Amino acid sequence: MADWMPIALGRDVPPGVTRAVIVEGREVMIWRGEDGVAHVWEDRCPHRGMRLSLGFVRGNALNCLYHGWQYGSGANCLRIPAHPDLTVPPTIRANAYAAAEAGGMVWMSSTGADAPPQLPELAPVLSLAVEAAPERVLAELGGSTARALVTLPLAGSTLHIGWHRVHATKTMLHAVGADIDIAAATAHLRALRQNLEQGAAA
């Protein structure tokens, strides 16, 4: 599939918030500072391995909950409270992924080698977990695992559905649209989930 993948709706990560996400079995987290920029990092503090998603945002920095190590938006450690006079070595860094926002979704890339997706701003509908493999989900939607986005005609408009693999048998869908009937789109996706999950259980 494409290097860039959508992992959340932008509206679900407002400024000052952290959010844990599982992407292809990896624990990652999203956080957004006061400047409005979303960051995607490995959900692990380099110090003791505490989940950074349990930390707190202050301004444009993320603080680990365990010992309060503070990281800047560039993933570099800015401050170690137990050693307030220490000049923190630049080698102490959180593991950051390339991140971008497009079409109302937060996207991540493991390499950042390709340019991030270019999409118009679209209104969020919902994110939805489906207990089925992405191959089955995308086949039902008429999409392909080679593409990170599926377009679906719905009630005279177009629903855009981003997806990412949580693990082999679970898929996250992130739906957005322009002038979309949100109630109809939500009902459609929930019915899709029910059909897929009932089929998996049969």
Results as ranks from 00 to 15, higher is better:
1 M>W: 11
4 W>A: 00
5 M>W: 12
7 I>H: 00
10 G>P: 00
18 T>R: 06
24 E>K: 15
25 G>K: 12
26 R>C: 05
27 E>S: 15
28 V>K: 04
30 I>V: 14
30 I>L: 15
31 W>C: 01
31 W>K: 01
31 W>E: 00
32 R>T: 03
34 E>M: 12
37 V>A: 15
37 V>P: 00
44 R>L: 09
46 P>R: 02
47 H>E: 05
47 H>N: 06
51 R>C: 08
53 S>Q: 07
53 S>P: 04
54 L>E: 14
55 G>M: 09
55 G>E: 07
55 G>F: 03
62 L>C: 03
67 H>S: 13
68 G>W: 09
69 W>E: 01
71 Y>H: 07
71 Y>P: 01
74 G>N: 15
78 L>Y: 01
79 R>V: 04
84 P>W: 06
85 D>W: 04
88 V>W: 04
89 P>Y: 10
89 P>F: 10
91 T>Y: 10
93 R>E: 07
96 A>R: 15
99 A>Q: 02
99 A>D: 01
100 A>R: 02
100 A>T: 05
100 A>Q: 04
102 A>H: 00
103 G>F: 05
106 V>Y: 02
107 W>V: 01
108 M>D: 01
122 L>W: 15
122 L>Y: 09
123 A>M: 12
125 V>T: 03
129 A>M: 10
133 A>R: 13
134 P>V: 05
138 L>E: 05
139 A>I: 03
141 L>E: 07
142 G>E: 10
144 S>I: 05
146 A>G: 15
146 A>N: 14
146 A>V: 04
147 R>P: 02
153 P>F: 12
153 P>A: 12
158 T>F: 09
165 R>G: 01
166 V>F: 02
169 T>S: 15
171 T>A: 11
175 A>R: 05
178 A>V: 14
181 D>A: 11
181 D>K: 07
181 D>G: 06
181 D>W: 04
182 I>A: 14
183 A>L: 10
183 A>S: 13
187 A>E: 12
189 L>D: 02
189 L>T: 03
191 A>G: 08
192 L>A: 08
193 R>V: 02
201 A>N: 13
202 A>L: 13
202 A>V: 09
